[in-house]
Design a protein around this nucleic acid. Structure first.
Lengths: 339, 339
DNA sequence: TTGTATGCGTTATCAA
DNA sequence: TTGATAACGCATACAA
């Protein structure tokens, strides 16, 4: 028969150690404010009883949780994995715990999760990208939850951000493609609505086209959710159109890998028949054959910096700075001059 | 000048709506227990004030959080991403929220995170694999937190689990390789210590070797952390040994991709010169060239079932069942008879 | 159907 | 250095 004892509380410890709850609390939170001998006795009882502080109670009393919440669009591919891991590692080093939710790219799910995290007492929040309903910003302001944006750099935005310039990064890549000799350029973009990263990557392509006097207003584009299979379908769609592109710029590496597969399935050689580029430089980009020319994003650096900055905000040491992290282009086999 | 108003509370709502806090609480938690007219008024005020219940207070008062915690070894690759996404989706459907932590394959980090999640009021926990210090099981029992294990099936274990039989799955694959004509078989395994999945996959290979009268006691093996680069190094190590294998079985797809790359870098053709197999059937397995023969694990099904089962446990409808999910072998180009 | 009053497990203020 | 006690915001048993 299981003894149905409930978890020990502060006062259980206090009673057993013959001290007040206040003393036990002090032993745990500011050990130096209690004399050696008492502290030792208390800690022994803590050990003996297997006491763990009740978090909810602690949050309520102290109004502080040492917890940071992060909401990412998806865990389903590697785009955010690496940066988030670095984010978490840095938080841990500084004594914070990370809680992660994924919104599946759905704004309403994201809002729900923001509220959930805030209600749960998160001391700070990390969000991806800037585009969301203004109500949610009001909510965050009202609840005074320091919030930082990552994966996007938008100096004029409501929230501070640690990110990179999606637009100029993509423009650089597009320029390189154009310089390579391509003029029939198409794009496979992620869904633009509610996604400022995708939108600005598209803008970047347009910038480069315009600079070189190419048609930028009616860019040959397919918009599709992220996913290898979607990249495949989008590529087929592009190839069935009137003018065949000689280079296909993809909104991220996952789409590019899909495009690559579709090309090979169609009997097209990459890069001889068509060049394909990605964005993000996730592990996948180097593994596929031919390897992808892509934009390298320093995910780990971004994650670490975001963690430090957010903690500064939480601890009132910073109002929230906006930092732009440099990207660079990684040249691999999937790009070559058109035949 | 920002007005520094604090977040509205239940009693703010109560006061504004001219009702008691109890009524407001009821409006939120059991709307049918309050008359239409009152409820409407209350909800308007809730909306007006932008009230969100304080989670910590709610957890404390109700002793219930509708939150499930999951601790996975890593977010750094796709192994757990898909199953976890399904797990979260199913939880959401049933009204629960998922909180995820990653332990970086470190037992002490995992323990810390278990305590963090429990202290935070998680109603239930999902863990990966069975191998951990018994103290932590005592802790979970003491705190009466329903806990389910996934990614592993071990009927005799302490905790119920929704998983697959790592040992027999790998044995099946090894048998297939042997039937193909291979007798010089090597293995690249994940780190065995504290990882029952890795251990049992190794056992599976040994089982198959033994059945066919091959040397199973001193299996030609390299043990290494998961990671493409580690797979590469391990493969080179194997190839530098006295007897060269004609087939290399890898503990998971990530290691296999590494092995594949190393083979190609060494000028070896796969599968003509050496066969390589993986485990998990993540997206990567089909993308690489040649595509990997591997063990398909129904991650989504496992995630969904784990969610349903864990909720049943949390709601006291189940003691925790142990379910074995079937895997099957996916035959792709990376496996062929030896020359 | 609604309100009153109490407790949940901490932290923090103030006194001793 | 330690102890008593008042918050913290909500849910719920019980009363009206």
């Amino acid at each position: 028969m299981e003894k149905n004892r409930r978890a020990p509380t502060l006062s259980d410890v206090a009673r057993t150690a013959n001290v007040s709850t206040a003393t036990v609390s002090r032993c745990l939170n500011s050990p130096d404010r209690v004399v050696e001998k008492t502290r030792k006795r208390v800690m022994e009882v803590v050990e003996l009883l297997g006491y763990t502080p009740n978090f909810a109670a602690r949050v309520m009393a102290a109004n502080r949780s040492f917890t940071i919440g992060a909401i990412i669009p998806t865990m389903d591919n590697a785009i955010f994995a690496r940066g988030l891991q670095a984010f978490q590692d840095q938080l841990r080093d500084q004594g914070y715990t990370l809680l992660v939710s994924s919104s599946a790219y759905k704004p309403d799910v994201e809002e729900e999760q923001i509220r959930a995290l805030v209600a749960r007492g998160a001391d700070g929040l990390l969000l991806i990208g800037h585009e969301r309903r203004s109500e949610i910003y009001d909510y965050l302001k009202q609840h005074q939850v320091p919030t930082l944006v990552a994966w996007s750099h938008l100096p004029e935005a409501d929230l501070p951000s640690i990110g990179f310039d999606n637009r100029s990064s993509m423009a650089s890549l597009a320029r390189k493609v154009i310089q390579e000799g391509h003029s029939e350029i198409a794009m496979i973009s992620g869904v633009l609505t509610g996604n400022d990263r995708a939108t600005r990557r598209k803008n970047g392509v347009e910038d480069a086209l315009r600079e070189h006097g190419l048609e930028a207003n009616h860019i040959n584009i397919v918009e599709t959710p992220y996913g290898i299979e979607h990249g495949e379908a989008a590529f087929r769609e592009l190839m069935s159109r009137a003018t065949r592109p000689t280079a296909v710029l993809c909104g991220n590496d996952v789409l590019a890998v899909g495009a690559l597969r579709a090309a090979q399935a169609l009997g097209l050689r990459v890069p001889e028949d068509v060049s394909i580029t990605g964005f993000d430089d996730i592990e996948l980009a180097e593994i596929v054959n031919p390897a992808l020319t892509t934009v390298h994003v320093p995910h780990r650096e971004m994650g670490r910096k975001a963690a430090s900055e957010l903690i500064e905000m939480v601890e009132g040491k910073s109002e929230g700075r906006t930092i732009c992290i440099d990207t660079y282009i990684v040249r691999r086999q999937s790009l070559a001059p058109p035949r």
